[in-house]
Design a protein around this nucleic acid. Sequence first.
DNA 1: GGCTAAGCGAGACGGTACGTCTAGTCTTGGG
DNA 2: CCCAAGACTAGACGTACCGTCTCGCTTAGCC
Lengths: 209, 209, 209, 209
Amino acid sequence: MSPEKQAAKGMADPMKPRGRPRSGQAHQAILAAALAELARSGFRALTVDAIAARAGVGKMTVYRRWPNKAAVVMDAFLSLVGPATAFPEAPRAIDRIRGQMRLQAAFFNGKFGRAIKALLGEAQFDAELAEAFRDRWLTPRRQMTRRMLREAVRQGDLRADRDLETVIDLLYGPIYYRLQLGTGPITAAYMEGVFARAMRGLARPSASA
Amino acid sequence: MSPEKQAAKGMADPMKPRGRPRSGQAHQAILAAALAELARSGFRALTVDAIAARAGVGKMTVYRRWPNKAAVVMDAFLSLVGPATAFPEAPRAIDRIRGQMRLQAAFFNGKFGRAIKALLGEAQFDAELAEAFRDRWLTPRRQMTRRMLREAVRQGDLRADRDLETVIDLLYGPIYYRLQLGTGPITAAYMEGVFARAMRGLARPSASA
Amino acid sequence: MSPEKQAAKGMADPMKPRGRPRSGQAHQAILAAALAELARSGFRALTVDAIAARAGVGKMTVYRRWPNKAAVVMDAFLSLVGPATAFPEAPRAIDRIRGQMRLQAAFFNGKFGRAIKALLGEAQFDAELAEAFRDRWLTPRRQMTRRMLREAVRQGDLRADRDLETVIDLLYGPIYYRLQLGTGPITAAYMEGVFARAMRGLARPSASA
Amino acid sequence: MSPEKQAAKGMADPMKPRGRPRSGQAHQAILAAALAELARSGFRALTVDAIAARAGVGKMTVYRRWPNKAAVVMDAFLSLVGPATAFPEAPRAIDRIRGQMRLQAAFFNGKFGRAIKALLGEAQFDAELAEAFRDRWLTPRRQMTRRMLREAVRQGDLRADRDLETVIDLLYGPIYYRLQLGTGPITAAYMEGVFARAMRGLARPSASA
DNA sequence: GGCTAAGCGAGACGGTACGTCTAGTCTTGGG
DNA sequence: CCCAAGACTAGACGTACCGTCTCGCTTAGCC
């Protein structure tokens, strides 16, 4: 998926590189073009020819670096959004989580939301793409969330829980669900609702004995 | 999407239908063939030609009834699974919900799970398909769940909640999340975990005051 | 090809016709529509659906009377031009032939020329159509020409010739040649040139001894 | 029609050609396959898919070079028969013409005759195809005939004639007429008959004064 | 007046080929 | 060995039209 992985195909990694070196300029141009085409046409209508043409690059140069169209677009997307949706600063970890959920809601509502939908949709048909999505988008964010959750437990705001994965799913599942299924708007208020119910629980206090 | 909607395109709906009526036999044969091809090849590899050939039907007969391959397969899928994943009987509504969640987990693990993934993925690119998915798969199930939730409130097991939509998202979001993102297996145990945490809440009892 | 031939398929020709009789009105409407479509779209672009629609007739009603689209158009064409291109009156038969050749030139230049081209073109792929063209267009005209030639021989203007077929070919071959190959305009002057050279011969008088 | 003409569509003809050059091998393979399919199935039944498959070539490669199926087959035909039906050697030009007419009769009776019929038929519906037929089949042959006719005049066998076009039509019109209309067999004897009558003329010697 | 047979307008049917499109690979000449 | 350009194979797509079939109805002659 990544250029490094591509390059590793040749066996002579530590050897001195021969011939004309790859143009970093081309790399950037391709990513930019991919992003532009993604915005213009959406994922499906977008063609590799169009990306190459817009980048002023041969198609071969694209395929030398990425195995297929989905991978290019995925990389373009990730290169762009990498640092976004961080956890805002706050004294209590629980508030940082809540803040991040609000940020994510805003994020999912813009054009990035559409891009994520498309990429995630395509990933249903392409295992490698799905892996890339998990490894480079999802996992880092879950990692961060896990850290926050542990901190919140330490600070006495959350119960200790052996299975943080499920906890994360409970908090973030609903937002992806709405994004993909389109059952309603993804607003800050909605995220607050999810957060509050997840914290407090749905059962009547007396009943859960 | 559905044939009825198709037919409604003509302006003279209440008029008596003229000409040779559409063959219900062909309709059924196409749906069956679509299902068979879906099982054999998966959604992407499956072709309309193959469906038509297997159904012993001209390609035109397929395209006369559905606008594209996704719509056919969606209809085929829905015609099959329509009645599945019902709420099992139980004295308390809250237990019926939990039971249904376990059933759904099983359901999502089989070939239906793969079909749903594919359909849901495709729906990210096709608004009409997305609508069909919502209207014919999702909405009826949410409707049913809503009824169950109200019953559970009446029976004193759940808090009253003005926003049942969010409650449903909290319960079912995680399962779709795992299905689509592949972050872990969808087991009965997982569903129990989701259910339990959603009921009890994540916060330390004292903290949520 | 003709309706009579169609009707003769049943074995009980002399039997009294049963059931609803065929509508003469539909027959005429179809021929008229075929002609109109021929003028509008040319032979290739013209569709049976269009003919039927314009005639306000079901497609079946067309196919009950003619075996295929070429046959309809051929009939439409012949019904129209039947009496045209007759031999003009003149005291000497040789002049009637020359006159008819001039008429034919004019005829081939109009829209009928285009229709003949198309019909003749199509006939290269359809034996039945070719037969119809020969039987109903060509043969009657050749018959007439043969009679004229014999008369001209009797009147002392032509040599006696055992093989009138070749003579006719010599006179009329060139006009069809130009029509089909498009090597030049089909004018009255051209026809005169053909006629004159055919009469007088190409060889130097002394040389042909 | 021809590949050169195709290529000329781009505006930068004198520019150095960039990118991978078109494969001459593919070109030849397609023509050969087209010929084979023409022999096997006839013009109408022959499909572009079959040509491409037999040539081991993608359909796109066919359509990149020719605008439609008729154009391919025409090119294939012309590339094959280019040099055929030459004028046989003889001391007197008039005999060379007569000899060529006999050769042409033989030629038109074989499978080439059927191909010419089909191509000529198709050309009635396709102006470009007709042009190709004229430019690459007909015109060169007429050119040659014109030269022969002039030589025969010089040798004293033919009258001088200002309008050689009409003379050629008189000699060759009948053969195409029979080929297209099917009014009789195209034999050497028939050609002799045409030739003789054209030379000597049809009129009674005394009458044509 | 009812019966039977065939024709009627409409339009769906099976089939087949078309010409277009895109993905991903290969091949030029030049850097 | 990389690059831009663009041709390559492969194969699905959606459209078009052919000639046939089927529906509910009408129109005739015969009983």
